[in-house]
Amino acid sequence: MKYILQRLAFYAVTAWAAITINFLIPRLMPGDPVEALMSRYQGQLDTTAIASLKALFGLDEHQSLWSQYTDYWSHLIDGDLGLSFTFFPTPVGEVISQSLPWTLALVGITTLISFLLGTGIGVYSGWRRGSWLDGLLPVTTFISAIPYFWLGLIAIALFAVKWQIFPAAGGYDNSLVPAFDWPFISSALYHGVLPGVTIVLSAIAGWILGMRNMMVTVSSEDYVMVAQAKGLSERRVMFSYAARNAVLPNISGFALSLGFIVGGTLLVEMVFSYPGIGYQLFQAVGAKDYPLMQGVFLIITLSVLAANLLADMAYALLDPRTRKEA
């Protein structure tokens, strides 16, 4: 319990630092993004919008840095991340909350699948070395060595253009209204197959390789030999003694990869024009949409931190040696 509180305190401090940096960076940037925007919108921005933009970017010279900082925090606590330029006048918070579920669903599920599948294959191929599973290893490593955008484009060229089995772009059929009903969900699943399969293919080799190598290392540990000598069933020796210890590094790797679900999917969503947060970020960069970029960065930072916290917790749960004595 003390351990968990310590970690929580540590992450609270880190989150504070990250948010503060997120606040400072636009204020350190040269030039005046608001001027650039005003010229882009050619006078379509009204004075209140300009004032709020200036306040957001710290261009409001009447305020001290400290009062800007406290304002920034009070806005943040209200969930106010400013207004997006690309989708003006939609608030950034709303843009993010619309795209975040897509990313979380697609990349979350595929990360989970590739972790479970890869670790499972790794356990078996590490335990029964020399079986046909070892032949799978070079194949998956080869696929993961292909740059992702190329893999995605090849998948589109083959399965969406040449054979037209799956749609090439989008998260759902545009003729449907997003709702929690079967036609919409099935359409979303159907659109998710191609990006999902390519993500799993490109990620699985790492899990297999990591797990297999750890299984090989752990299999030669004395306690595995003891378990064999005790006449325990092979299942128990393999899972409870060998895999249970071998999985620990993979667990922390998995928790960290959860943090990159939000941020690390730029390529996937660009290639498949998937309406997730990476695609949103891509558009924001193209349109110099600073508030949206800032909001997305904030979400990415916080999710990486949350994943780290999760990794710590999972490790403490699974490895008694990391638990500090109370």
């Binding site: 004395d222 306690y223 000598a229 006449g231 003694y241 620990l248």
Partner: peptide, 21 residues
């Protein structure tokens, strides 16, 4: 047969126990 009729105490006292159980 193992352990029921014949058991072993191994030389590595430090590593003979599974650290996570």
């Amino acid at each position: 047969f193992r352990w029921q009729e014949l058991s072993i105490v191994f030389q590595g006292a430090m590593n003979s126990l599974n650290p996570v159980h």
